[in-house]
Amino acid sequence: MGRDPDLGRRDFLNTATTLVAGAGLAAAAWPFISSMNPSSNVLARASTEVDLSNITPAEVRTVAWQGKPVFVFHRTLEQIAAMAQSLGSDKDPEPDAERVQRPEWLVVIGLCTHLGCVPNRKPHGWDCPCHGSVYDNSGRILKGPAPRNLDLPPYEFLAADRLLIKKA
């Protein structure tokens, strides 16, 4: 029995129909998938403005940014000088100058880079209560299980005493 001359045409129509239907199904699925992403009112809360004028030297103010704690640390000259002399630990060495825009203001995300607990303030920096990670006054990891220094949020100074922690 010879090959049906219509067969190639049928295969083409079958494939084309399936492809168009598949594309339509994918397009129809998109609004449903997208609806689970943050809605516009959530996105509108994605940046936080901080008034720095009432944060005294050596004080750490914890502010909420995108639902996460951010430490805004008004460092003293001694603290700045101490931090400038080290690179933290061998685990994630980083000069202090690269972690701040203005040396007197350290702005770091207050979540331990190990498993996301909020470290507690100590004179030497921060200690994580969950698994004992220790951070210095530049938010750099000194010891413990955390793999890297405290993360930096995207931010800019709008004025001398106004800080904007922005969308990434």
Binding site: P31, S35, N37, S39, S40, V42
Partner: peptide
């Protein structure tokens, strides 16, 4: 996205219409 609470229900539907991605369509 809906809230089954007499104090929140109406506004949650408006939230769906205005703020949820493609909420109006769904």
């Amino acid at each position: 996205h809906y809230k089954a609470d007499a104090g929140l229900a109406f506004d949650s539907v408006e939230h769906i219409m205005r703020e949820v991605n493609y909420g109006w369509l769904i």
